[in-house]
Simulated scan of single mutants.
Amino acid sequence: MTQRTRLRFNGAAILRGTRQGSVRGLRLGSEHVLQVARSRVPIEEATLERSGTATVDESSLKAAVAFDTPYAVRQHEELNYQHDAGRTAKYLEGPMAEEAAQVAAIIAAQLRRSLR
């Protein structure tokens, strides 16, 4: 006995879904890194901590996490500054490297979700 199966492949819908999943994953992943970085930002009056943002460029599928104060770069790079306990220089570089696997897992989960 012969059994026939017909499969209709809708590539455009799949690409739309994966793109949406990618954007959602990038957004959640960058927010995760921002949250970790905010917990390490040197803090005096919390201005630097509040200046943190996470953005996603949907057209290029790139995410960015940034802190926007006149002294953000100096605080990040100056290893000799004294900071409160738990606060440190390299407050963004550290979380970016340490959380890379978690960010990849977040993006993968959103891609899987978009393909359901």
Rank of each mutant, 00 (worst) to 15 (best):
K90N: 10
S51A: 00
K62H: 05
S22R: 09
T88C: 12
D57E: 05
I107R: 00
H76T: 02
A104Y: 05
Q110G: 02
R38C: 06
A46Y: 08
T53S: 13
A100M: 10
V56D: 02
Y91W: 08
D84W: 13
A104P: 04
K90I: 01
S22L: 10
G11T: 14
R16W: 09
I107T: 04
V56S: 03
A97Y: 14
E93T: 04
Q82M: 08
E93W: 04
G21T: 03
A46V: 03
E99K: 00
Y71Q: 12
R74Q: 14
S22C: 12
A100Y: 06
F67P: 01
A63D: 08
T53W: 05
S114N: 01
E78A: 12
T53P: 06
R24S: 13
E93V: 02
S30P: 11
G86E: 03
A100W: 06
E93Y: 02
S60H: 09
G17Q: 02
T55E: 15
V36S: 03
G94W: 02
R24H: 14
R74E: 15
A109H: 10
S60T: 09
T69M: 03
Q75T: 11
A89Q: 12
L28M: 12
D57C: 04
Q82D: 13
G11L: 15
G86C: 14
A12C: 10
L34M: 06
A108K: 12
Q110C: 07
R19K: 13
K90M: 14
L111F: 02
T69D: 05
R87T: 00
P42C: 13
E31D: 07
Q110A: 08
Q110P: 02
L15R: 15
L48C: 09
P70E: 02
G52C: 11
D84T: 12
V41N: 00
A37E: 00
I107D: 01
P42Q: 06
H76I: 02
A64Y: 11
E58M: 06
S114A: 12
E45S: 14
L48H: 12
S59T: 10
L79Y: 06
S51Q: 01
T69F: 03
Q75I: 08
Y81D: 09
A100H: 06
Y71C: 07
R38K: 10
H76W: 01
L79T: 11
G11F: 15
A108E: 09
L34H: 00
A100N: 07
Q110M: 02
E98H: 15
D68Y: 07
S22E: 06
R112D: 09
L26Q: 00
L26K: 01
T18W: 07
V23E: 01
L92W: 03
L79C: 04
R50K: 11
G11W: 15
D84I: 10
A101F: 08
Y81P: 00
A12Q: 14
V23M: 10
L92A: 04
R50Y: 09
G52R: 03
R113A: 05
T47Q: 11
E31L: 02
G94H: 15
K90W: 10
I14H: 08
L92M: 09
E93S: 12
A63C: 04
F67Y: 13
Q110N: 13
L79M: 04
R24K: 15
Y91I: 11
L28F: 07
A104D: 10
A100E: 09
Q20W: 14
Q20V: 14
L61F: 03
